[in-house]
């Protein structure tokens, strides 16, 4: 168990967004979180790297353990947490900087300034997302000149450059076409050998294709958490069945 929550509740002001969530996520698996819009799946994801701290009026109760450490305890170093738990966002959101500077951004925060080391990290990260051959001669060009799929790969490379252990992916393919989506999914299957991946998606086929375990959320509750096979063939909750068979959502 690398990520565990117990009795996790989250409130936006008076709105109860996450209700009593108990969850345990295993290392080196892809865990999918599915559910209709507004069910709290992105909010749950943003708990794990404490991105909700940026929003005013958020209150969290219950425990969230990552590597058996309570991430809300005062001794937890937020910056180290975010280094360990990286995030890929919904839209490919490269900085308006060069390809090189985008990937070097994280390492530079960690005070790596040596040119040779930075170059190695950039090359290694690009190779890990299978972009190195395509971009090795274009490192100085603006990252915004890349296609959406390549930008999303670049964003993953930028994340890998800070050497995280857990990758949080918030609908990483929602702005990509089916072919690009397929390529990103292949990449995730490669990445799971080294990293633990938690992916939020409203695309059930995607969860079925790549996830090892799936959690179904509805109105802030975690209704069911099971192996992908079980969820999609023989769910134990009626509501899960209704959702995956397209009755609502």
């Amino acid at each position: 168990m690398i990520v565990e929550t117990s009795h996790l509740n989250l409130y936006y002001g008076s709105f109860h967004a996450l209700k009593d969530i108990d969850l345990s996520i295993k290392e080196n698996l892809i865990t999918g979180i599915i559910g209709p819009s507004g069910c709290g799946k992105s909010t749950l994801l943003r708990v794990f790297n404490r991105m909700n701290d940026l929003i005013r009026g958020v209150r969290i109760t219950g425990a969230v353990l990552i590597d058996r450490e309570d991430i809300h305890s005062p001794v937890c170093d937020l910056i180290l947490l975010r280094k360990k738990v990286g995030m890929v966002f919904q839209r490919p959101n490269a900085f308006p900087l060069s390809i090189f500077d985008n990937i070097a951004y994280g390492p530079r925060i960690w005070s790596i300034t040596d040119k040779k080391t930075l170059r190695d990290i950039v090359e290694r990260s690009l190779a890990a997302v299978d972009l190195f051959d395509a971009l090795k001669n274009r490192l100085k060009e603006s990252a915004l000149s890349l296609s959406a799929e390549k930008q999303q790969r670049l964003c993953i490379a930028r994340l890998l450059a800070v050497e995280p252990e857990i990758l949080l992916m918030d609908e990483p393919c929602s702005s990509l076409d089916p072919i690009a989506t397929g390529k990103i999914e292949e990449l995730m299957l490669v990445l799971k050998r080294k990293y633990t991946i938690i992916i939020v998606t409203h695309n059930m086929q995607q969860a079925a294709r790549i996830a090892d375990e799936v959690g179904f959320m509805l109105l802030g509750e975690l209704i069911e958490f099971n192996s992908t096979k079980k969820i999609f063939t023989n769910p134990s909750d009626r509501r899960t069945f209704d959702y995956i068979s397209g009755r609502f959502g």
Partner: peptide, 27 residues
């Protein structure tokens, strides 16, 4: 400056000062 730029910077472990200095001001 889009909020998403700040979010990425924080999500990569950047502090407030890193974010202002390396993302917000250049953009």
């Amino acid at each position: 400056v889009p909020l998403s730029y700040r979010e990425i910077s924080y999500s990569l472990g950047g502090g407030k000062l890193d974010t202002i200095w390396k993302v917000v001001l250049p953009t």
